[in-house]
């Protein structure tokens, strides 16, 4: 169900430019990778329906891409758009913190 780049998880992602460009870095299809992707999709559908595009990058297949976004921890979710860039690491299980990280909720 999870495929590598680029993927369009929702019909709305077919439009050329979305307000939300999200990139999820993982290393192989581990349980944690899958959980992160599931959690991300759920949050996006809930809060950003139709405005987002998720690109999943498997660093085991494209290790050279780790350098560009300064990836150290995995999984890492990078918010490319809207600027500024945000990084959220972990399996995204803590929804509240993901929302804070994506600036969808003000910081406490």
């Amino acid at each position: 169900m999870m495929k590598t780049t680029p993927q369009s998880p929702s019909p709305s992602s077919t439009t050329a430019v979305k307000a939300w460009e999200l990139r999820l870095y993982v290393a192989g299809q581990t349980a944690r990778s899958l959980a992160a992707f599931e959690n991300l999709k759920k949050i996006c559908e809930e809060h950003l329906a139709g405005q987002y595009h998720i690109e999943v990058i498997d660093l085991l297949e494209q290790p050279q891409l780790a350098r560009g976004d300064q990836i150290i921890a995995l999984p890492t979710l990078v918010r490319k758009l809207p600027v500024p860039i945000r990084k959220i690491i972990g399996d995204l299980s803590n929804t509240e913190r993901v929302l804070v990280g994506l600036d969808l909720r003000p910081r406490a």
């Binding site: 870095y25 290393a27 944690r32 660093l59 085991l60 290790p63 050279q64 780790a66 350098r67 300064q70 990836i71 150290i72 921890a73 995995l74 999984p75 890492t76 500024p84 860039i85 945000r86 990084k87 959220i88 690491i89 972990g90 399996d91 995204l92 299980s93 803590n94 913190r97 993901v98 804070v100 990280g101």
Partner: peptide
């Protein structure tokens, strides 16, 4: 290889590992 870690840019949400670092060094 310069690795930049900016705490202010990073939100931690759950379990993670440093496989990204391993991959970069390994590459």
């Amino acid at each position: 290889d310069h690795l930049r870690i900016e705490r202010s840019e990073i939100e931690e949400t759950g379990e993670y590992d440093l496989e990204g670092l391993f991959i970069r060094i390994g590459l």
